[in-house]
């Protein structure tokens, strides 16, 4: 299998006035194409910081990050913007949709920034929204959708541009059980069908049970890395 993400001795230290805080402490991991990975751990264990680092949103204070063989930790900000646009899909905890765009426009948004053809955007956005069960909500604005529906649109948006991997930061945290299971079904299905690497941070047991690999972080370090058969 192809390695999509590789981190070597990854570190993120915050220099507080009292004492430096090692949010991510020497993490060396590899993620393979098509993996469905849950990063778990208690609050403050470094899950979100780790996702921000491999997503190119934050700069490490030490170590390296390779995405598809490209070192991203030394990239300039403008290069990182472009890199994220072309390679990474994001799903955040609190339904981060663009409020003034419809569901279909939200799903098309990244493809629009990538300057894909109108026909391709149209087809792919409709197809993705059908896959997440929202074919009847194409022209609904986020405020006309429930929390679960918004999160499904966010997943559709993250996957529509066919990124190398998708990072999801506690995607089910604000959802009821039914919506959470529904979302997980969709993510699992798309992961298999599109063969897109999915990495999500969570402390939701319902999510952990569905993951193919579970990495546990404690105090910024990997305490357990297990593949679930």
């Amino acid at each position: 299998m192809k390695t999509v993400i590789k981190t070597t001795n990854l570190q993120k230290i915050y220099n507080n006035s009292v004492a430096p805080v090692k949010a991510v402490n020497n993490i060396s991991l590899e993620f393979q194409e098509g993996e469905f990975t849950a990063i778990v751990g208690p609050s403050g264990s470094g899950k979100t910081t780790f996702l921000n680092l491999i997503g190119g949103l934050d700069k490490p204070t030490g170590g390296e990050i390779y995405i598809d063989g490209t070192e991203i930790s030394t990239m300039k900000e403008s290069e990182l913007f472009d890199f994220r646009l072309r390679n990474i899909g994001f799903v955040f905890q609190s339904y981060n949709l663009i409020p003034v765009l419809t569901a279909k426009e939200n799903v098309s948004f990244i493809m629009l920034l990538q300057k894909r053809s109108k026909a391709e955007m149209e087809q792919r956005a409709t197809e993705m929204l059908e896959q997440v069960g929202l074919s009847d909500k194409l022209n609904s604005r986020p405020n006309q959708l429930s929390g679960g529906q918004q999160q499904r649109v966010a997943v559709a948006r993250a996957l529509a541009s066919k990124p190398k991997f998708v990072l999801a930061d506690e995607p089910t945290a604000n959802l009821d059980t039914e919506s959470a299971f529904n979302l997980l079904d969709i993510m699992e299905k798309l992961n298999k069908e599109e063969n897109i690497t999915l990495i999500f941070s969570t402390h939701d047991q319902r999510v952990i049970e569905r993951a193919g690999r579970v990495i546990t972080l404690v105090d910024g370090s990997v305490s357990k890395d297990e593949v679930i058969s």
Binding site: F81, R84, F92, N96, I110
Partner: peptide, 14 residues
């Protein structure tokens, strides 16, 4: 501000 962070995360340039 949070929305801007989202747009930047998605790859929209400053």
């Amino acid at each position: 501000r949070k929305e801007f962070a989202l747009l930047f995360s998605l790859g929209m340039k400053r």
